[in-house]
Structure formats: structure tokens, C-alpha cells
Design a protein around this nucleic acid. Structure first.
Length: 463
RNA sequence: GGCCACGUGGCGGAGUGGUUACGCAGCGGACUGCAAAUCCGCGUACGGGGGUUCGAUUCCCUCCGUGGCCUCCA
């Protein structure tokens, strides 16, 4: 079961750590382990947030196919402790106790996130851990780091000592001196080294707080990076196969995760393969609230089926920048409709060999899509159906969306049939002037006619 | 300022040291009374300038443009 089976392509993945595409060999083929950084739940997820979710969902499907569904463990966390959450909660519920306000914000945001993902048709990860449920693991990690000299206590903070790790910077490929030269932030006075980062910090009154590690006697809360080290450790172990996220996370977030985990466990790696998806722009511009082009998943779902959004995302290779446009969405919707027009159902969701081969090559989705276009002839219809199912695309929502999108008819169906009968009679008499007039009139009312080979005439709402 | 990506035909978007990616749009043909739908066919592109090479869109240098990171961020 575990090893590459006959007929299955070798999976190759681009590894940020080595900056090269490599053959993928799991640490334990009986259980391939993948961790992806999930959202910080303080606001509606935007379409950029959807990219890693969609990309790594695809990888999850490919891994399950290659290694068996029971031999893959996918963990995607929820970050529910963060300064942005606190700020939002205080602003949204000024009268409420801060902790209660935070609970309201995180609960509502997480529910919305799950609704969004449901509509997008991505699979559930095997585990979706919350940061606040892993405070104990964070404390344990911090104690380990302090004990081994990789972290120190200063003014009720615990800081990671970057100079204690000789190969710090291996993931982002940044030599320390260069970073210092470009740094333009004030260095907290209690840091021994400018690059040191916070593992734990004291809570201010009213803020969420937990008993601190390392002998600190005031309550505190975790720094940004420690949660992922804690959650991946708890659910995947000290080392695991794949760690994914957006390319903006490479530094400092992932670099610091690597430092924490490797130094806590004295291992040469944290994750074997690091994968990062590229950024997204909207209509050629960077997405920002100030430009007014901030697009949430929820907004898009009001106008489009989730599958169209997902296909649109996969049209571009995951490492490339993507420009999210209305025109692209129209095209994606059209493509999906064409595929379902041509596909024959397959009882088993399974990728066509050529599609799987493309996906195995570092998730080359544009190539895979080209292969799906090639399946539209008779011999490929069933393979196309199986591939669509494998990718999680479903026909019904698309069809009902398309039907709802058609212009409303200004004429009753019975009336259409009557006019068609009238036109057939005219054509039989070779009275084409009348025939064409009827067709034009119906078209003006939103009805498009099709004269079939067998002499009948069918119609559909004009697109 | 430092570091790092990307720049392909009208549009989207793979890939490759020398042979048509693919899709959308467009054009031509078949079919049709004419259409629609469908089917068949057509485009020789790779930011500018140098260099390496028998040969570069593909490698190297440089310039320009766009974006990312260095501070919260997918």
C-alpha cells in the first residue's frame, strides 16, 4: 500500500527550503503528515486567504490518492489568540468584558470561515486545532527552549535567542547581517540580540492570559509563532513531511517556527518540504481596504458557485502570482459548464492518468486543466467525469446557478411551443420570412431556438 | 535602503536550449433555406539591451515594469 504503486506517477514538489523541485519521499509512507497555516479569525476571509486552502486541499486529494486515504494526516489550524483579534473585539463590543468579546469574535468568524469552505467544496482537514487549546504544549516547548539555552526570560517575556541557532535563516535564505542592515524597527530594550523574537509575553489587565512558563509569576500569552510549533508537534510529531502556507509567511513566521521546533527537539528538520503559494491581485491591483477592492470569499459566493471560484484559482500554478478578475471568473464558469456537458458519470472519483501526472508534477494545475480539455471526446468522457469528481467538482450547484442566471422569460413556455409549431408549419411551406420573423421575435423575448436534424425544434433561455 | 519573485500571442496561462501547449475571444470551412448548436481548420508569442552557444523565449549580466518580504498579513 505504502510504496509507489505500479502505474502511479512520482510526486514531485517544489521545496522552499532547497529552492528546487524534488521527488517526494514521506518520512513514513504509512502516514504522510501535512500542516498548513490556517486563518487568524478576526474578520471575514478574503479571496487571498482562499488560495492556500484550495491549493493544499488539492495536494491533500493527490496524497490520499497516491498513498491511500487512511495514510494521510492533514492539519490546518485556527489561530484564535492574537492582537488583531483583541483589537477587533474591543472595537466591536466596547461594553463587554474583553474575553467575552473575543469569544464572540472568534466564534462568529470561525463559523463564517467554515461556511465559506463548505461552499468552496474543499475537504475537511483531519484535525483543525485551535491555538487556545494548545497553551500547555506551548509552555512545554518554551520550557524546553529555556532549558537548552535557546531562550531566555527578560521582563516577563520569554525570547528566542537567534544567535543560539547557527543555521537560523535557512528557510528564507537570509543571512543575519543583511536582515539587520535592512531592519527599520525599534528593538525592544530587553532583547539581547536585535533578531530575537518573542515566545511568550505578559498579558495586560483584561487581556487573555494563562499561567506563564519559565518561572514568570504573572499571566501571559503566546507570541505569534509558537502556536504552530505546538500544534504541529501535538498532532504530527516532532518532524513531519509537508508544511504549507502563503509565501508572505516564509519570513518571519515559518523561519521562526523552524527555529523553535528544531531547537526544542534537537532535530535537523522541522518539516521536510516547505511549500508556499504565491500572492493574489484583484483586477491588476493589490488587494487592500484602502483601494476598496477587498474581496471576501463570502461576497464572491453571493455571485458564483464555489466550484467556479475553485477552478478559477487552479487555472494558475500555485507558485505564480494570480490576477483575480471578473473576466477570469466568467471563463472559468464557462469551462466548468463545458466539462459537465461532455462528461459521463463515473461511479468512482479518480483522476485520469494524464491529469494525475500533471498534478504529481508540483501541482501543475494548468497542465492538468489542458489534459481535461483533451478528455472531452467520446473515449474520455467517463475519465473526465471521474476526474471532476476526484477534484471535488459537482454539477448540480453549477447547473442551478446557471439556470438562475439566465434572463427571465417574457413569455410562457406553452406560448413558446405554440410559436414553434407555427414556425415549423411555415418552414414546411418554405415561408422563411415568417419562420425567421418568429425566431427573431422569440429571441427578443429571451428564447433561443435550435433546429434539430430530425426536424424538431428545441429551445433554451438565451445566455 | 537590503533581500526575493514574476514579466509569454487580443486575453488567461503551461512549458522548453533547436519540433503546434492548452483555454477564451476572433477568423475561415462543413452542416443549415438562413441561423443557432456542433464539428474541422487557422494565429508562430515569449519586457528592452548586451553576453554565452552552431542555435535562447528557455542559461548569464544589466535596465525597465509589477509584486512580495524586512512590521500584522495567505
Amino acid at each position: 500500500m505504502s510504496d509507489a504503486q505500479a502505474g502511479l506517477p512520482e510526486l514531485k514538489l517544489y521545496n522552499t527550503l532547497t529552492r528546487a523541485k524534488e521527488g517526494f519521499a514521506p518520512l513514513d509512507p504509512a502516514l504522510v503528515r501535512m500542516y498548513v497555516c490556517g486563518p487568524t479569525v478576526y474578520d471575514y476571509a478574503h479571496i487571498g486567504n482562499a488560495r492556500p486552502v484550495i491549493v493544499f486541499d488539492l495536494l491533500y486529494r493527490v496524497l490520499r490518492h497516491l498513498y491511500g486515504a487512511d495514510h494521510v494526516k492533514y492539519v490546518r489550524n485556527i489561530t484564535d489568540v492574537d492582537d488583531k483579534i483583541n483589537a477587533r473585539a474591543a472595537g466591536e463590543y466596547p461594553g463587554l468584558d474583553l474575553n467575552e468579546a473575543i469569544a464572540k469574535v472568534t466564534f462568529a468568524t470561525e463559523a463564517q470561515f467554515h461556511d465559506d469552505l463548505e461552499a468552496l467544496g474543499v475537504m475537511h482537514p483531519d484535525v483543525e486545532p485551535r491555538a487556545t487549546e494548545h497553551i500547555a504544549e506551548m509552555r512545554t516547548l518554551i520550557e524546553k527552549l529555556v532549558a537548552s539555552g535557546h531562550a531566555y526570560v527578560a521582563e516577563n517575556h520569554v525570547l528566542f535567542s537567534v544567535p543560539s541557532m547557527p543555521d537560523y535563516g535557512e528557510l528564507s535564505h537570509r543571512p543575519l547581517d543583511e536582515m539587520l542592515a535592512g531592519a527599520r524597527v525599534d528593538v525592544a530594550p530587553y532583547k539581547r540580540d536585535a533578531m530575537d523574537f518573542v515566545l511568550w509575553k505578559p498579558s495586560r489587565p483584561g487581556e487573555p492570559g494563562w499561567p506563564s512558563p519559565a518561572g514568570i509569576d504573572v499571566n501571559g500569552r503566546p507570541g505569534w509563532h509558537i502556536e504552530c510549533s505546538a500544534m504541529s508537534w501535538r498532532h504530527l510529531g516532532e518532524t513531519f513531511d509537508i508544511h504549507g502556507g502563503g509565501i508572505d509567511l516564509v519570513f518571519p513566521h515559518h523561519e521562526n517556527e523552524v527555529a523553535q521546533s528544531r531547537c526544542a527537539f534537537h532535530t535537523g528538520i522541522m518539516a521536510k518540504v516547505w511549500m508556499h503559494n504565491g500572492f493574489l491581485q484583484v483586477e491588476g491591483e493589490k488587494m487592500s481596504k484602502s483601494l476598496g477592492n477587498f474581496v471576501t470569499i463570502r461576497d464572491l459566493l453571493a455571485d458564483w458557485p464555489g466550484d467556479v471560484l475553485r477552478l478559477n484559482m487552479l487555472k494558475t500554478h500555485y507558485r505564480q502570482p494570480i490576477d483575480w478578475t471578473l473576466k477570469g471568473l466568467e471563463e472559468s464558469a464557462k469551462t466548468l459548464e463545458q466539462w459537465f456537458d461532455a462528461a459521463a458519470p463515473d461511479a468512482y472519483p479518480r483522476p485520469a492518468p494524464a491529469v494525475l501526472e500533471a498534478l504529481a508534477d508540483d501541482l501543475n494545475t494548468p497542465k492538468a486543466i489542458a489534459e481535461m480539455h483533451a478528455l472531452k471526446d467520446h473515449a474520455g468522457k467517463k475519465a473526465l467525469g471521474g476526474t471532476l469528481a476526484f477534484l471535488g467538482f459537482s454539477e448540480a450547484p453549477l447547473r442551478s446557478w446557471a439556470a438562475g442566471r439566465a434572463p427571465t422569460l417574457d413569455i410562457a413556455p406553452e406560448e413558446v411551443e405554440a410559436r414553434i409549431a407555427e414556425r415549423i408549419e411555415a418552414r414546411r411551406n418554405r415561408d422563411f420570412a415568417t419562420s425567421d420573423r418568429i425566431r427573431d421575435e422569440l429571441l427578443a423575448l429571451g428564447v433561443a431556438l435550435k433546429d434539430n436534424k430530425d426536424g424538431t425544434t428545441s429551445w433554451e433561455p438565451r445566455r
